[in-house]
Design a binder for these strands. Sequence first.
DNA 1: ATTAGCACTCCTTTAGGGAGAGTGCTACCT
DNA 2: AGGTAGCACTCTCCCTAAAGGAGTGCTAAT
Lengths: 349, 349
Amino acid sequence: MNEHDAHIEETGSLSERERQVLLYIVEQFVTTATPIGSRTLSKLTDLNLSPASIRNVMADLEERGLIGHPHTSAGRVPTDRGYRYYVDSIMPQVQLSDNEQHFLQSRFEQEVPAAIHELLRTSSHILSRISQQLAIVAAPSLGRGVLQRLELVQVATDKVMVILSIRSGIVKSIVLHIRSEISRQKLDQVGVLLNERLAGLTLAEIRETFVDRMREAEADEAEIIRLFIDSSDRLFSERLETDAVCIDGMMTMTAQPEFDDPGRMRGLIELVENQRVIVHLLDSLSGGQSVTIRIGREINDDTLSDYSLIAAPYRFGQLDGTLSIIGPKRMNYPRMIAIVDYLARLMST
Amino acid sequence: MNEHDAHIEETGSLSERERQVLLYIVEQFVTTATPIGSRTLSKLTDLNLSPASIRNVMADLEERGLIGHPHTSAGRVPTDRGYRYYVDSIMPQVQLSDNEQHFLQSRFEQEVPAAIHELLRTSSHILSRISQQLAIVAAPSLGRGVLQRLELVQVATDKVMVILSIRSGIVKSIVLHIRSEISRQKLDQVGVLLNERLAGLTLAEIRETFVDRMREAEADEAEIIRLFIDSSDRLFSERLETDAVCIDGMMTMTAQPEFDDPGRMRGLIELVENQRVIVHLLDSLSGGQSVTIRIGREINDDTLSDYSLIAAPYRFGQLDGTLSIIGPKRMNYPRMIAIVDYLARLMST
DNA sequence: ATTAGCACTCCTTTAGGGAGAGTGCTACCT
DNA sequence: AGGTAGCACTCTCCCTAAAGGAGTGCTAAT
């Protein structure tokens, strides 16, 4: 009911028959990866219509931009809008079977992740395995995270490790390079100072007001405070230093026939290797309350115009992260949505 | 002069002419990626020999297993042994141009890495860019690293972060999950205890003797010490928790013609996604003193039989890491060796 | 020892010719 | 009017054949 609507241009309403035909085209194409002809459909459906009638319906659907054909005499293939209509109005809702649910549960209970990146790693691995798509799990955004305690640890003569314990149990650690040596005492003093002034605030608040809050202190321990101020963007950014997103499943996804094309494969590799695109993309979705679906061009990225994305937010303590899959548009939407949804709920516990 | 020799089966010595021909075959094939015929070679070289004579020489080389042809009537292609002979006995030594050296230097000086993984990331990125191959940089092995100081930080009610400061400025941090709460005081006591008993030892020593060293202490703080003992393999392993190796350059490497084959591409993706193979592989090389070259089947791994590997050790403080590239056997060996060698030296400073 | 010549092999490219699948249109049926 | 049957047409895909090209291996001559 918001920007999402931007994708649905007025399609008008379809007759029951048209819905049926579209349904079959999508579902057949999803499983067979080949364009669907009128004959096939006539036999397959329980509509009891001749191929010719089907063709008429198809022509209508094509006029509305829901299906197309790669060349004059090939079968029909859903367009982005076709998939969208299917997802919004035709598709059945499915749930994972009890077996699958239990399996996933047990996989999650198997190991209690101590650090956040272990959670990301296992969940992305599980997600990619069960979905057979590219799985992307983004670490929770720390912006709203409340700083519980900050610790400074001198790890070398010229390095200080800053450890931010965020309520909800996430730890962010950053190593800062210091120019002039600092005594352990002074460091402790600075630590106390920082805790006094920052504990209890969210990282977002800290980042915005850090300079102000440190104002008078600056005189005292000028150098080290200066360093903190200079690094404050990094220190208090909402992103972890390492492994902000975890991607898995390239291998399993490339088993699908669309990846027999080396060009396609290269695109995928570029995507995963850069990550920038993905990080940016997930940021743009982070507002959503439940499962978000983006199909083909709806993802505003040319490299992803042949893919679909299904994302769901999860909660980790009080923080929000995103879990998602990317795969060929030709994916089993009902099932994929069920998987992502279920896994997001599972992670939120 | 050791296991390396295993690859050189007695090839006998080649006449000057044979060396020349092999040289040209390798270098031509490296640049053109197509088999080399006798005609081409006759024109190209300054040997002033007719195609027929060249063919004789080629036949000899083939008998010795240095070259082969994909099918009866194709040009010649170097075999693994051919490359090996070329690398060992024919290949010129080259150096990077001053320009390139300066460029690399400036790239390294540009940013002083605070944490080790930043160093890995930048260096693997630089290496992949300049070599156009897959760059793999492994973090230094911590086994010989001397524990300078160990810090315990409670980061949540049920989590303790253990920070190991290794001499040479590497930091390894692990989050442990604790079952029953522990007071800050007790934690500090344990910290002091651990430092007393472990500081100054290498991680390898600690790992081996940890249980012994903790023996009497166990009674005192049974639970928490127990936890440390159970986790000691992880805590004191020679590998970092995250980002133990950093891989870059898939994208640039796949521009090469060998990767027009989707199967090949999948193999590569599998390799990079698993990393296990690579980690294991680099471990097996870590003894070397200088540049190590493995060609095709010399790498004992079927998935890598079409690739070559060039690796060099670097020193970080007192610790040894490995920096390497993997690419099609058809690579510019002299240049690649120069790059890897130079970069390893550069990193060691 | 080197070279010229020649037959032969094998790959690659090109062209052509069904076969198959599917469409779009028109005429016809109910 | 909606549904159906028929039919011509259009593509793709796959197979085959043929020509072209590159390169070898052998032999005989220099």
